[in-house]
Write a protein that binds this DNA or RNA. Structure first.
Length: 934
RNA sequence: GGGCGGUUAGCUCAGCUGGUUAGAGCGCCUGCCUUACAAGCAGGAGGUCGCAGGUUCGAGUCCUGCACUGCCCACCA
């Protein structure tokens, strides 16, 4: 074994080397399972996971890293447990986001996209994509994400685009896609419609203005309130509530719109609520969704007073050309001057802003394409209600269902250039619009050949919502689909629960329903009995957001973005992954804290040095020893797979074997429930706190031929050490893939039985290896050693001085056990000699007692008597407080009657212990000449 | 306006279905370069679990109210 390893672990070179190796060897590629009769290989369980596709021109941030770390842990874990494991990577063309970046780039040259024209602009975006696209995938490689790189996709790949067109046409034919002129959210900067989800509301201090409209034929005015006075230029009515008696006399009358001198009717409509403001409301059908609906009810004209830049247009009369806010100022000034402004109040408004660029969104009347969402939502709701899809943690289930219940039609058209173009054509002559799979040659209505494709593209989420079906070959019926659909799991952040997860469920259920596999394909794939399932995945795990150390959301504008690559550079990928795993308790956001990562870098170093220890000793004792290929990869029980079988002989062997199996059980359970922090912490505590701190220390004499150990014993210790180390590495591998691979490969001196530890079997707990007796005995031994160390510190014994101790064992078995492990006590507690005595040592100074033994360090104390008295008093106080509590409980008949026997029993045992401790501490205090003051 | 979280040691966080003495990492204090590891080892200090009630033999854990804090959803002028 290679013992010439550097003393400190340097992750950088090692990590990039293995990352490259995994890719070069195509270790994580999953070819389509071969046709033919099912073989053992093809009947293994399948695990499929779709990577939430990052934006093609994006850069890795902490959120990605958390997301990918969790996925990689789950994926590696499944792979090691023998699943056929497919993790599908890809990138999203990210319509608006990418277009914005290129526009910004163009702006540096002083150009706008319209200067280039559509075709040239798109060519430029593709260039940009070539240049910057996929950078994030390279970054993923650095994380060790074990995806199938041979199946990488891009949402604008030809096959995916084809599927998108097919979906559009089908939905249109089913009447689920329609086109119409409605009020949509319009971003004047992006010059496109955006969906409700892409609008972020923000409470800002605004004003509520009251405007008086003269009622024609009277001397009265009717006063309305508005937060957007500039839209009054497009008013086509005033509404009052029919129940509102204040306005009964005005029903049917007309008002004169100030500034525009237009006559508008006073109508009655539920839109106006008597409780609010003056009870009268201006109706602007072209600029407000509610007014729009009211307009339809009353057949009101729609007067659009703004253009796509939110500048006033010709309909705004002399305000034409002004920006909306400039127009607002002028309108207000004019109203004021003419005496129509009745009041101004402070008012908090929820201002809608474009999710992408932050520009204030303007409700705008325009021709758009929509998906009739309710029919799709029904099935998507059912899929979750029925448990076909489970959402973890389950509070997101409610959130999801709520959203589905209150869903509105989805505006899918965007006035952008970058994206999937809508497969619809307009006839230049008769304006007929045709939706088709391929460009039609002639107009279906007037036979004209002057047809032009609709210029809009689709919302990015339209294509990403289809990924589970399209990446596996839909609309064809492929073997991949038969095998891998439905995917098993989706891991994502809650931010995109509605944007993406909900849409995938809607689309997946809709398009896979009845998309029965050709029986021949099913049969040939060897997966024939798979239930026909339309859901895109069976489980969704929602994880938290990564925030900065101050819990702030990371954002570029705040400048508090932690660059994961920077962290990786300084601490290593393994340590960074471990940090994210260890902090990822379900439910709460993660405040990323570098000091934790620093701690886990130390953990990696600890593992490294434990490995060095192993290599050094094996080399010295039995250089030929190395793991044997025996069971690697077969899913054999832990500790026994792949290595010289672990043969417990000594107490520490039995103990560590038992502990390993318990930890293994816990880790598997934790991963099953996505309790990453628990899995990580269990391994950490085991490896450092038990394996390194105790086991390695305890086997040193055997390895060094001390305390009567002969060659056989030394070899046995080496074999067990190698065995256990191999298992521990496999247990840790999903979280820290690099260091485990490095050490594992080194153990096999470059000739491993498998190409990678990633393909080896994951440890499984064997309950037969649980050894309660060994754990109990070991606990006593540890307790004894710690007690002596404790006493040494109190007595201020020089570190190098070995001291004699006296031990009174309360039971003969305990005495025998301690005698048997005498060497360990002497070494680990720096003890010269152990003398067993037959009477209690409790009242002596420099003594300590537990339920199982009393121990006394024989040393002439040079202690500060006063300080020691203080300590004892404090100790006593604590004991007595607990005792009082304890006695109270035990004196309570209700408790005795109702509490489970084991609890009562424990309480009684504790009472005895506490009383004896109290007595002994008092004795010590007296021995020191102290008295109790409490 | 609805809904959902959080509040535990100086800092960052664990604590699953209520049960004997509430844990970890970092930081802090004391002492050690003990031939795997000073990125280490040994020992230690530090918490009335946000506040107030309630349920229970028993509450950090369950219920109610309050306070502070964060987030999501929402077409009311």
């Amino acid at each position: 074994m290679p013992h010439e390893l550097p003393k400190a672990y340097e992750p950088g070179a090692i990590e990039t080397r293995w990352a490259d190796y995994w890719i070069k060897e195509k270790l994580f590629s999953v070819p389509t399972p071969p046709p033919g009769p099912p073989s053992e290989k093809t009947t293994r369980p399948v695990f499929t996971l779709l990577l939430p596709p990052p934006n093609v021109t994006g850069r890795l941030h902490m959120g990605h890293m958390l997301n990918q770390t969790q996925m990689d842990i789950i994926v590696r874990w499944h792979r090691m447990r023998g699943f056929t494991t497919l993790w599908l990577p890809g990138t999203d063309h990210a319509g608006i986001a990418t277009q914005m970046m290129v526009e910004r780039d163009l702006a540096k040259e002083g150009k706008k996209r319209r200067d280039l024209g559509r075709e040239k602009f798109i060519a430029r975006v593709w260039e940009w994509k070539k240049l910057y696209g996929g950078a994030i995938l390279d970054q993923m490689k650095r994380l060790g994400a074990s995806v199938d790189w041979d199946r990488e996709y891009f949402t604008m790949d030809e096959n995916l685009s084809h599927a998108v067109r097919e979906v559009f046409v089908r939905l249109y034919e089913e009447g689920l896609i329609y086109r119409g002129k409605y009020i949509v959210n319009w971003c004047p900067r992006c010059e496109t419609a955006i969906s409700d989800l892409e609008v972020k509301h923000e409470d800002v201090a605004g004003k509520l203005w009251e405007i008086r409209y003269p009622v024609i034929g009277t001397k009265e005015f009717i006063t309305v309130a508005t937060t957007r006075p500039e839209t009054m230029l497009g008013d086509t009515a005033i509404a009052v509530n029919a129940r509102d008696e204040r306005y009964t006399h005005l029903h049917g009358k007309k008002a004169l719109l100030p500034l525009m001198q237009r006559e508008i009717p006073i109508i009655t409509d539920e839109l106006a609520q008597p409780e609010f403001g003056t009870g009268a409301v201006k109706v602007t059908p072209a600029h407000d969704p509610n007014d729009f609906q009211a307009g339809l009810r009353h057949d009101l004209p729609q007067i659009d007073v703004m253009d796509e830049h939110a500048h006033m247009n010709a309909n705004a009369g002399r305000y034409a050309g002004l920006d909306r806010y400039e127009a607002r100022k002028r309108v207000l000034a004019d109203l004021q001057a003419q005496g129509f402004l009745a009041g101004e109040k402070d008012y908090t408004i929820a201002l809608g802003k474009c999710d992408r660029c932050g520009t204030v969104v303007e409700p705008r009347l325009s021709e758009q394409w929509f998906i009739k969402i309710k029919p799709l939502a029904e099935r998507a709701k059912e899929a979750v209600e029925s448990g076909e899809i489970t959402i973890v943690p389950d509070n997101y289930r409610t959130i999801y269902l709520n959203w589905m219940n209150n869903i509105y039609d989805w505006c899918i058209s965007r006035q952008l250039w970058w994206g999937h173009r809508i497969p619809a054509w307009t006839c230049a002559k008769c304006k007929n619009v045709m939706v088709a799979r391929e460009a039609p040659l002639t107009c279906g209505k007037c036979a004209s050949t002057e047809l032009e494709q609709v210029s809009d593209v689709l919302d990015t989420w339209f294509s990403s919502g289809l990924l589970p079906v399209t990446t596996l070959g839909w609309p064809e019926k492929t073997r991949d689909q038969a095998v891998f659909y439905p995917t098993t799991l989706l891991i994502t952040a809650y931010e995109i629960l509605f944007f993406w997860v909900a849409r995938m469920i809607m689309f997946g259920c809709h398009f896979m329903q009845g998309h029965e596999q050709d029986p021949a394909i099913k049969q040939a794939s060897g997966w024939g009995d798979k239930k026909d399932d339309s859901v895109p995945f069976r489980q969704v795990y929602i994880h938290a957001l990564v925030r900065d150390a101050e819990r702030q959301k990371m954002s570029k504008t705040k400048g508090n973005v932690v660059d994961p690559l920077d962290v990786i550079e300084r601490f290593g990928t393994d340590a960074t992954r471990f940090t994210l795993a260890a902090m990822a308790a379900p439910g709460t956001d993660i405040a990323f804290n570098e000091s934790r990562t620093d701690g886990y870098r130390a953990f990696a170093n600890k593992i490294w040095n434990a490995a060095r220890f192993m290599f050094m000793n094996v080399d010295r004792v039995e250089p030929g020893l190395r793991p044997t290929p025996a069971d690697v990869g077969a899913g054999a029980s832990p500790v026994q797979s792949g290595i010289p079988v672990f043969r417990p002989d000594t107490l520490e062997d039995r103990w560590i074997l038992s502990r390993f199996n318990r930890v293994t059980a816990d880790v598997n359970d934790a991963l099953e429930a996505y309790r990453f922090h628990e899995a990580a912490n269990r391994i950490y505590d085991f490896f450092w706190g038990e394996f390194c701190d105790w086991y390695l220390e305890l086997i040193k004499p055997s390895l060094n031929f001390e305390e009567g150990a002969d060659k056989t014993a030394a070899c046995a210790a080496c074999a067990n050490l190698v065995s256990l180390f191999d298992s521990a590495l496999r247990l840790l591998h999903p979280i820290m893939p690099f260091i485990t691979e490095e050490i594992w490969q080194a153990m096999y001196e470059g000739k491993p039985p498998l190409k990678s530890i990633a393909l080896a079997a994951y440890p499984r707990a064997d309950e037969k290896q649980f050894d309660l007796a060994a754990e109990t005995e070991m606990a006593i031994l540890q307790d004894l050693i710690v007690s002596v160390r404790n006493l040494r510190a109190e007595l201020k014994v020089e570190p190098k001085v070995k001291v004699p101790i006296e031990v009174f064992a309360h039971e003969s078995e305990i005495r025998a056990m301690i005698e048997h492990n005498q060497g360990a006590v002497e070494r680990l507690a720096n003890v010269e000699k152990i003398t067993f005595v037959e009477t209690s040592l409790a009242n002596r100074a420099g003594a300590r007692s537990t339920a199982r033994f009393d121990v006394h360090v024989v040393y002439e104390r040079k202690i500060d008597v006063a300080a020691e008295c203080e300590r004892l008093k404090k100790e006593l106080e604590k004991i007595e407080k607990e005792l009082a509590n304890n006695q109270k409980q035990l004196g309570n008949e209700q408790f005795l009657a109702k509490a489970p026997a084991s609890v009562v029993e424990g309480m009684k045992r504790r009472a005895v212990e506490l009383k004896s401790l109290q007595e002994k501490t008092l004795g010590q205090l007296k021995g020191l000449g102290g008295s109790r003051t409490t």
